[in-house]
Design a protein around this nucleic acid. Structure first.
Lengths: 108, 108
DNA sequence: CCCACTACTCCGTGATACTGTGTAGCTGTA
DNA sequence: TACAGCTACACAGTATCACGGAGTAGTGGG
């Protein structure tokens, strides 16, 4: 799929929130997971900037833990504010995608 | 619905293409139509910048026509390149929205 | 005559995803 | 031991896009 970057704006952060919300995980793994899920062109640099933003906005709890393989990992988990933000994201997504889908079907 | 601006990036242009594709129309009317369709916060300034972009990218044919009420209108219609772009937009939208929807349902 | 509505233009702003580069730890192999 | 390759994170700069605000005009009604 060719360039999705513009379309991802505003949604990629929500996707990261969703992944973190389903299990405590870290940047490198999140990137791999997104790639598996079809977001093939998403790279680490993008995810790390999102993670920094989430931390700065107080949506996640961060824990540094050593890895068996390679350098230490920074694990991210949602806190209450993060869970609220995730719910708000899905509300917005439902709203937007329904409007766009019905614009496609007949334009009514 | 609160701030959708980031989520609209990359999709709003496609919505405008769709509207122009269904009938030849002009900026002011496109804005009103989008407002009716639930994109309540979209303002004229935004639409006009998109229209300029579409013209610059050679996706539309432009015709200036007098109005019975107020200043002249610039009517926009899709050309072949525009119809191709519109089709590509919907392909991307289907791709992206399906990935996001199934990320929401269980994450598989 | 001013106000409201229609209709377009332009400049600047802020947010976001991306690119590229650098650093660093660990493992396997030649 | 030397080096490649994977894991893992950080950071500075760039491009694109939707938006805000102000300005310019044309038309018609109170």
């Amino acid at each position: 799929m060719d360039d999705l970057t513009e379309m991802l704006k505003g949604t990629l952060e929500g996707c990261v929130l969703q992944i973190i919300g389903s299990e405590e995980t870290y940047g490198y793994a999140i990137t791999r997971r997104l790639n598996e899920l079809g977001f093939t062109d998403v790279v680490e640099g993008t995810i790390y900037t999102i993670l920094v933003r989430l931390e700065r906005n107080g949506l996640v709890q961060v824990t540094k833990r050593p890895s068996e393989r390679g350098p230490a990992r920074k694990f991210f988990a949602l806190n209450d504010a993060g869970r609220k933000e995730l719910a708000a994201f899905w509300t917005k997504w439902e709203y937007l995608s329904s409007r766009i889908d019905n614009l496609k079907e007949g334009g009514q």
